[in-house]
């Protein structure tokens, strides 16, 4: 910070004795205090949201777990809470969620990483400045539009390649979801890789490494904490994604690891139940909160993992 030289007042002006006085009016001081408190209240409200989420999920799902034991919830292989002969096993929904997520990640992680390496290490600045925002548009498209695309464009396309593929299937939902989350992977990974100091690259070049070797063996590992965080964000996005799977993957709970089958995910089940008119307090109503708790815990695990990863492998240059 530079020290401002004392050049106040022109040299010709006669010197007057100036008494420095704090001239803040009562009004402005009062305003300052009021605003400080208002702003603090706003900041605290974000914590209230989390409290609200946790409280609602717990209080609304507690009655469910009074009727259904945790053991049954976790081990029963059927999920039919709205049938005359109800079964409350979350496994089929969890499996549907995991399979669609896995398909999406098989697309998004490799493609997103390659895009990130290309944009950060190879692409000219002008190309990168254009491509990055355009790619980010992929995550700006409403998910219901992706659902339409998966059901009425990708599935018919896949059916030509794989005759016998059912109209609802986890494969097309997962593929489209994968494309949707590419920007989450690529943008954040690219930011992380560009934050790696040039010195490291120059060191690698000086040792005779090629660009590709430098990118894969030096830059990628150096940026791993940021890239890992990007992967984690992509995973929790895929787990929580709702409309694509609700539209294109089907609505029947189905315990299978075959992505060409149809199966409901946790989020798709919640949507399906909410579309009907369920009375407040019925077991069907409570079951969506039980499903919600499961979904929340699954994403929470990954969020905590991401947090830990960032802290643990953070390299400070």
């Amino acid at each position: 910070m530079s020290v401002i030289p004392h050049t106040l007042g022109s040299p010709e002006a006669p010197h007057k004795s100036v008494t420095l006085r704090v001239t803040r009016s009562w009004g402005s001081r009062l305003m300052d205090v009021i605003m400080r408190w208002l702003l603090r209240v706003a900041a605290v409200s974000s914590v209230l949201i989390t409290l609200g989420i946790v409280t609602v999920l717990i209080t609304e799902s507690l009655p469910f777990f009074k009727q259904v034991s945790i053991g049954e919830f976790l081990t029963d292989t059927h999920w039919t809470p709205l049938f005359a002969n109800p079964h409350y096993g979350i496994l089929p929904l969890v499996m549907g969620t995991l399979v669609t997520t896995l398909v999406a990640l098989l697309v998004a992680l490799p493609v997103g990483t390659v895009v990130a390496i290309y944009l950060s290490e190879y692409a000219p600045v002008a190309v990168r400045e254009i491509l990055k925002p355009v790619l980010e548009l992929l995550s700006a498209v409403p998910t219901v539009v992706y659902g339409y695309f998966a059901l009425l464009f990708v599935t018919p396309l896949l059916q030509r390649l794989m005759p016998g593929l059912p109209g609802f299937n986890m494969l097309s939902a997962g593929l489209v979801m994968g494309i949707m989350i590419i920007p989450y992977v690529s943008s954040l990974s690219e930011d992380a890789m560009r934050a790696v100091p040039m010195l490291l690259r120059e060191g690698a070049y000086a040792m005779g490494a090629s660009r590709l070797t430098t990118a894969l063996r030096v830059v990628y590992p150096a940026a791993l904490s940021g890239i890992g965080a990007a992967y984690i964000l992509a995973i929790s996005r895929a787990i929580g994604e709702t409309m694509i799977v609700a539209i294109a993957a089907g609505q029947q709970p189905n315990l299978t690891i075959d992505p060409t089958q149809q199966a409901a995910t946790i989020s798709a089940f919640i949507v399906q139940v909410c579309l009907g008119d369920l009375p407040h307090g019925s077991i069907g109503y409570q079951s969506i909160f039980a499903a919600g708790v499961t979904l929340m815990l699954m994403t929470l695990v990954f969020n905590i993992l991401g947090h830990w990863l960032r802290k643990r492998y953070r390299q400070v240059y």
Partner: peptide
């Protein structure tokens, strides 16, 4: 909060 699935906000 940024990582919470949107449907959870709906449940809340």
């Amino acid at each position: 909060l940024a990582g919470v699935p949107s449907i959870i906000y709906g449940l809340m």
